[in-house]
Design a protein around this nucleic acid. Structure first.
Length: 489
RNA sequence: GGCCCGUUCGUCUAGCGGUUAGGACACCGCCCUCUCAAGGCGGAGAUCACGGGUUCGAAUCCCGUACGGGCUACCA
């Protein structure tokens, strides 16, 4: 592909960036990067009822969070702007004038009510239910006269009579054929002068010199209409590539019923962008059928449309979780601290000053937590005992562990041995505690679980010796003594 | 109704005429072990939607059927 690749992602700000849209964005981005092309972001804000500035901002934020940097679009600008559809209306009027000159469009005076009657009649007879072309038969002079008289009208595409079949080679699905006589004389420009979706996208894609239209499957059936518009406009066709839908766990189209559907919702759930990007890329594309974990760079170097799957995929949050865990574990301690801290701050466990004051302590803590969380929102639960001054011991832990034979002796011995330490690091804590099972003639498990419950308040915690070292001598001894009151010898 | 697209383990997928149908998640077992994880090893799990062809040979090519999805708006 030596031509200058230009692709675009064109979300509509009628909602947040959702999972399906994000994957489309990722594929467009990857395709552009792979071919050294241009990735364009265009906001399709032509639905005034549902489009909001807030949604536009949310989409921009989500794109940035995913690392989808675009070469042309809002904020960054570009040669082919503007990048908001509402600001491109002049080019639609221009295109309409061109079509009028070429005789490829005609005014239609049928009212919506009339159209509905015709449509219902046609459909009940079976077969093609498009516009019956009444106004196409109007003489030019009559049409002109009615327009001059101020009669409301739309402008329709004059689908060529003898067009035959519309065939195009879809980059993911192969050759797709539509009989031209099943394509409607669709409305291009509404009564109020605004462009309809199919007209606007086509004009935009043509004037922005888009070479590859990579978009959702739901547009496959719109493609023949758009091809006819390109032809009427005398523009060359881009390559089309249609991506299958992403479905919910029940096999139905992904919607709010399935829980989180927006990219930012996943961010708030504790997923990290690398994992979301990787997972979404994998949902419908494969590097080689074997590799499941790959970087943004690997994606950008290897993405190819002919390896995009043709069938719809069910979004599997469990696999995303696993992948998120993989990325969390791969993070270096320092980077992990930066990612963890906001989540601890949100829980009121720490603040920027605290982190700055004892960065090294946080970096020791990081690897302890990374191995046992899959999402960032789990962090606080794992390390809370290291931040709170006093802990409460879970009732079942007290019963199951502290009230067991030998628990109190273990705590006393542990306090004794630890109180003698000068250097309170994980290695020395371990060394001294390891002597206990032998000297007390208790199973290691009994001793260590008693200490764990006393110190962390739970039967489940990060590794004991490291945790104690991180907690510090003073707080450890206090907790051992406190727990003694409810422990059994 | 019409037109178009899709159908390989529960899920995501590899496969592009000859494979014991491969991998990943989830699941089960064992190992490691101070708990939980992580990790290692192993296991179970797909008559490739169904029916016809073509071929020496089909998950792979062709045609039907079924099921699912999309479009069929002066929404995008």
């Amino acid at each position: 592909m030596s031509e200058n690749v230009r692709v675009r992602f064109a979300p509509s700000p009628t909602g947040h960036l959702h999972i399906g849209g994000a994957r489309t964005a990722i594929y467009n981005w990857a395709f552009a990067r792979r071919h050294g092309g241009t990735f364009i972001l265009r906001i399709e804000d032509t639905d005034p009822e549902r489009s909001t500035e807030e949604n536009t901002q949310a989409i921009l934020r989500a794109m940035e969070w995913l690392g989808m940097d675009y070469d042309e679009g809002p904020i960054v600008g570009g040669q082919y702007g503007p990048y908001f559809q509402t600001q491109r209306t002049a080019s639609y009027s221009e295109a309409l004038e061109e079509l009028k000159r070429a005789g490829a469009t005609y005014p239609c005076f049928c009212t919506p009510a009339e159209l509905e009657v015709k449509r219902n009649a046609a459909r009940s007879k079976g077969g093609f239910a498009g516009y019956d072309r009444t106004c196409r038969a109007l003489s030019p002079s009559e049409a002109k006269a009615r327009i001059a008289a101020g009669e409301p009208h739309v402008w329709r595409l004059k689908v060529p009579e003898d067009r035959g079949e519309i065939v195009f080679s879809d980059a993911v699905r192969g050759d797709v054929t539509f009989p031209a006589d099943t394509v409607d004389d669709l409305v291009l420009v509404r009564t109020d002068g605004s462009a309809t979706y199919n007209f606007a996208v086509t004009v935009d894609d043509a004037t922005m010199a888009i070479t590859h239209v990579i978009r959702g499957d739901d547009h496959l059936s719109n493609t023949p209409k758009q091809i006819l518009i390109y032809e009427a406009l005398g523009k060359s066709l881009p390559t089309f590539a249609h991506l299958s839908m992403i479905l919910g766990s029940d096999g139905k189209r992904l919607s709010k019923r399935h829980g989180a559907t927006s990219v930012e919702a996943y961010r708030d759930l504790g997923y990290i962008p690398e994992a979301v990007l990787n997972y979404l890329a994998l949902l419908g594309w494969s590097l080689d059928g074997e590799t499941t974990v790959f970087s943004r760079e690997t994606l950008a170097e290897n993405f190819a449309l002919d390896r995009v799957s043709r069938n719809a995929a069910i979004f599997d949050e469990e696999k995303l979780e696993w992948l998120n865990g993989v990325y969390i574990r791969e993070l270096p301690a320092s980077g992990l601290v930066d990612r963890i801290v906001p989540w601890l701050e949100a829980e009121g466990l720490t603040d920027a000053a605290d982190v700055a004051a004892r960065r090294a302590w946080f970096e020791e803590l990081a690897p302890l937590v990374s191995e046992r969380i899959k999402r960032m929102d789990e962090v606080a639960g794992v390390v809370r005992f290291l931040f709170d001054d006093a802990i409460s011991i879970a009732e079942d832990a007290r019963e199951k562990v502290l009230m067991k034979e030998g628990a109190a002796r273990s705590l006393e011995a542990a306090a004794d041995v630890l109180s003698r330490l000068d250097v309170f690091d994980a290695a020395s804590v371990e060394e001294s505690l390891r002597t206990l099972p032998g000297s007390l003639e208790l199973k290691p498990k009994v001793v260590f679980q008693a200490v764990r419950v006393a110190v962390t308040g739970s039967t489940v915690s990060p590794p004991l010796f490291e945790s104690i070292a991180l907690l510090g001598k003073e707080r450890t001894l206090t907790r051992l003594h406190d727990a003694l009151t409810s422990a059994t010898h």
